[in-house]
């Protein structure tokens, strides 16, 4: 074996070892629920303890027509009441008159959803090979097509203080939360309540004012 062959053999051993190591990369078997997230954010200069009252509309805004075709309104009452319960537990008082009671912050709740569709195609029942005068490869059989669709949605809860200025604009979102994930048969009252509760669990500063 000369030096060139030895170098090639070295390279081959290295590559085989590397491929085996990379092939051990775990997939973890994640399910669709594993891609659901609850994200919360806040403006760092906010003093949350100064907020005592809030106003929240009694409906959830669907940001477009497609959202209304995907997301049912049967969960609206549950979503709004769960938000109100959490805010009450943190000491916030809900107001119903934005003029007379002049709430400190306003809570806006919005939902959006869209459908993704993936097409796949191919042939079935055929074979590769020469056939008559056709230029190879000829493939017999017939085409089949299919689609996979999934609905993805998000629920956004924003706390807006109209008296402050953020980025040179009057009024701004001082706290926001988003639940995002697949929308489908997996959604239930318990699922929604738990996810909305999580928005407030990971935002204790809404009550204490102590930012992380």
């Amino acid at each position: 074996m000369n030096a060139y062959q030895r170098a090639m053999a070295w390279g081959a051993v290295f590559c085989i070892t590397a491929l085996v190591a990379v092939g051990c990369y775990p997939s973890h078997g994640l399910s669709v629920e594993d891609y659901d997230t609850v994200i919360t954010g806040y403006h760092p200069s906010t003093t949350f303890t100064k907020y005592k009252t809030y106003f929240m509309q009694d409906t959830i805004v669907h940001v477009d027509v497609e959202t209304s075709t995907i997301i049912s309104r049967k969960y609206d009452a549950l979503i709004l009441s769960t938000i109100a319960t959490n805010l009450a537990n943190m000491g916030y008082v809900r107001t119903t008159d934005t003029v007379a009671q002049n709430p400190d912050v306003r809570i806006y709740v919005a939902a959006t959803a869209t459908t993704f569709e993936t097409y796949y195609g191919g042939y079935w029942g055929g074979y590769w090979g020469w056939y008559g005068g056709y230029y190879p490869p000829y493939y017999g059989g017939y085409p089949v097509y299919g689609t996979t669709t999934w609905d993805v949605g998000a629920l956004a809860v924003d706390m807006v203080d109209r008296t402050i200025s953020i980025g040179g604009n009057n009024g701004g979102i001082v706290w926001g939360a988003s639940l995002s994930g697949l929308v489908g048969g997996g959604v239930s009252n318990t699922y929604l309540a738990n996810k909305i509760n999580q928005m407030f669990i990971q935002s204790p500063y809404l009550e204490t004012g102590e930012l992380p």
């Binding site: 594993d34 997230t37 919360t40 954010g41 992380p212």
Partner: peptide
């Protein structure tokens, strides 16, 4: 739950982490 800071936005994200 993972805390994060991105420019002027700070917050947390909860979910399945790899």
């Amino acid at each position: 739950t993972q805390q994060f800071q991105y420019n002027e936005l700070a917050g947390a994200i909860n979910g399945t982490q790899v």
